[in-house]
Computed example of a mutant assay.
Amino acid sequence: MTPNDSSRYRNDLPEIERLIAGLRLPASAVLQLYELAQHPPLDDVRLPDDAESAELLDRLGLAAADRAELVTARPDPQATPELWWLLERCVTLLRERQGSVAPLSPWPDLPDELGAVGRYLYVWVMLTAAADARAFHRSRGIPDDHSWAALGVLAGQLGNRRALHGQGGLHTQNWVTHHFRGAIYVLGRLHFERTMITFDPGSAVAAPGIGAPALGVHIPEGRLTPESCDDALDRAGRFFAEHFPDEPYRYATCSSWVLDPQLKEYLDPDSNIIRFQERFTLSPDTGPDSNSTVIEFIFKRPLAELDQIPRQTSLERGIVDHIRSGRAWHFRTGWFEFPP
């Protein structure tokens, strides 16, 4: 820590201690707040007004239940000063990092004790920063339909929260920041993220080097037919060549439980998932135990309810039986040359 950093830390600490108490956060959140403290707003942060919010929510496709709660959970600098402090700095950070592929420092998870205004705070951050994301899209010549498709991922994340926890709000704020700063785009069946190689690709011939530009492949829910994946990859090749010609993407990567080779024990060789796996060369790193994440993604239920989960498909039976046998699923990372 430099002398200037030390002075800044001493100046920020009393405010951060106050925020920790006001937001009812654990002491471990102090570093997250300290990082956000370095991004004060240069101008007043203005939330979208009622008419602007209604138009945004229409375009983003939020469900009626989420819309109804959101409009009554509007943060206010006087009524909720600590939450407003957080909102201002999150909005500012998104504005500063528009177009960046580097991950942001994580934003703190807010406790349920803060009520609906806390559960929806990060939604208001995204709504406030939407105009900045749209401006970045326009600067790259990205059409409106692609712009709204990328930002519309927010609605699905709200739906996931409601299905998993039985209440509205956003708990995947750190994931959605990628969409609201121009890093991820929805192109048919798959989503593609402007990123770079950050893992050990192994020793295969033509393996990428660390730091090489890459398109991160993300898999929303639904069937992974080879035809739909081929179409998405073709769209991605044309999209990024047109709108990001200065970023030559030679590789595609994916990090997902879908790439766990243990799935071959439960699925037919010609199943969509196994055929998707065959596109990739796996990194040697097996990653941590991801059972809870896999169960939440597939069943929208916590791992603690494993014995109550209905199993209707071979995939669902395999996922649950694997865990019941005392084994773990892993998020595996793989790569292939792009375009394929």
Rank of each mutant, 00 (worst) to 15 (best):
S6D: 13
R8Q: 14
L13N: 04
I16A: 10
R18K: 13
I20W: 06
G22A: 15
L23K: 12
L25H: 10
V30T: 15
Q32S: 12
Q32K: 12
Y34S: 14
Y34G: 12
A37K: 05
A37G: 04
A37W: 02
H39Y: 11
P40C: 05
P41R: 05
P41N: 08
A54M: 07
G61P: 07
G61H: 03
R67D: 04
A68N: 06
A68R: 14
V71A: 06
P75H: 06
Q78N: 11
T80P: 03
P81T: 08
L83K: 02
W85Y: 10
L86G: 02
E88K: 04
V91T: 00
L94R: 01
R97K: 13
Q98G: 05
G99T: 05
G99M: 05
S105F: 09
P106S: 13
D109P: 06
P111K: 10
G115A: 11
L121G: 07
T128Y: 00
D132W: 05
S139A: 13
G141R: 10
P143H: 06
D144S: 14
D144F: 04
H146I: 01
H146V: 03
W148P: 03
A150R: 04
L151M: 14
A155F: 07
A155V: 08
N160M: 08
N160H: 12
R161Y: 08
R162Y: 04
L164F: 02
Q167I: 08
H171N: 11
T172W: 09
W175V: 14
T177V: 15
F180D: 00
G182Q: 01
I184L: 10
L187V: 04
F192M: 11
F199N: 06
A212K: 11
L215T: 03
G222A: 06
D230A: 15
D234S: 15
D234L: 10
A236G: 09
G237Y: 09
F239E: 00
A241K: 14
D246C: 11
E247Y: 14
Y251I: 10
S255W: 06
D260A: 05
L263Q: 03
E265A: 15
E265T: 07
P269A: 11
E278C: 10
R279Q: 02
F280Y: 12
P284F: 09
D285W: 05
T286H: 07
V294I: 11
I295L: 05
I298V: 15
F299R: 02
K300A: 13
R301P: 00
A304I: 11
L306Q: 01
D307V: 06
R311C: 13
T313C: 08
T313Y: 05
G318A: 01
G318E: 06
I319N: 03
R324V: 08
G326N: 11
W329P: 00
H330Q: 11
T333G: 09
G334D: 00
F336D: 04
E337Q: 13
E337Y: 02
F338M: 06
